[in-house]
Design a protein around this nucleic acid. Structure first.
Lengths: 195, 195
DNA sequence: CCTACCGATCGGTAGG
DNA sequence: CCTACCGATCGGTAGG
């Protein structure tokens, strides 16, 4: 599957450039240059610049969804599963997806606005669904007294923008280890809704 | 000062477009069209597209700095000034600057990367200074036992990305009132570092 | 603030 | 994956 690895290389390079300069600020030639091929040659592998963006964003959306599903499933399997455990598991999973691939994660967080109208709408829906899960989780914790009384909409916005904000500063070769970060963020998040 | 108001109109329109489509995704003609003038006519008022971006970003940087200064000064004047009061005041001030002008704030948060090398470096320094103040505040609270023991770097990153994240979802005509938001955010922020 | 215009670059296609 | 090429648009200038 030469085709597949080349596509992946293109996505890697594009993610990195999109993160640095944005989708509009990155030309097809920029991507090609990073791969040591001619601009027009890129079209042997992709249909359009837009398709590259879509591949990155769609893949990451799926990854976030899957990670949340898996984390909540595990958390629910534990005998002492409460909203706190669930929220911590969700945060840890979300942070893990980001640190595992900051470049694509950054494109997902910031560049989905450059998607074509329909694709943008789809991602908008999926983001809404995801955010709704977080809100529900917080609302449940609030209702049972595990969490303090907060506006779930505001608290979820605070939480999600904080976590997604990792894409703006995290570097894999930096001082902060992924595991440490996941723990610290789960900790802060939990404390921020504690009574 | 006709010149000044026209410049302000240009900045208003540019902020709105830069927020929606990004600096690279916005053309000089887009800005001109929103003002009902010809693309080239814009150059009667501004030297370059880059200068418009700089005007917006520089103005907002100054506003954030001034708001933080004022808030901390007031907080320190109170007899029971402790790190908690100071942090709450800082958060409220920061949120206030954002809700007061989400469009420019959004450009400040997201588009400063499109600044020319030197200007980008200057804003980088000023952002670092600002972030350092937040870290110090958190570290002081940690040391005196007002706050829990946290990594000030990680906690400050969490806090600042959460607050700046307001630019990604806040709408002046939305459900959430600016004052309510400032209170709620100060509350969550304080709780997130409480023992 | 306008018209007329500039060279450079854009995303993408044709045809190998 | 390359060369050659396309029309459209880019930021910006000259000269009123």
């Amino acid at each position: 599957m030469v085709e597949t690895t080349r596509r992946r290389e293109i996505e890697d390079v594009a993610s990195s450039l999109f993160r640095e300069r944005g989708y509009s600020g990155t030309s097809v030639r920029d991507i090609a240059r990073a791969l040591d091929i001619q601009g027009a040659s890129l079209y042997a592998h992709v249909a359009s610049k837009q398709d590259v963006l879509w591949a990155i964003v769609d893949r990451m959306a799926t990854r976030f969804e899957a990670a949340a599903d898996a984390a909540l499933e595990v958390a629910d399997a534990e005998p002492d599963a409460d909203p706190g455990t669930r929220l911590a598991a969700l945060v840890r999973a979300h942070v893990g997806v980001i640190t595992d691939d900051v470049e694509r994660a950054s494109v997902f967080v910031h560049e989905w606005r450059s998607l074509s109208t329909e694709r943008r709408a789809e991602i908008g829906r999926r983001r809404d669904d995801y955010e709704r899960r977080v809100r529900t989780l917080i609302a449940e914790g609030s209702a049972t007294g595990t969490f303090t009384e907060v506006d779930p909409v505001v608290a979820a916005a605070y939480l999600l923008t904080a976590i997604n904000g990792i894409v703006s500063w995290y570097r894999p070769d930096g001082r902060v280890r992924p595991e440490t970060l996941a723990d610290a963020y789960a900790d802060i998040a939990l404390r921020s809704v504690s009574p």
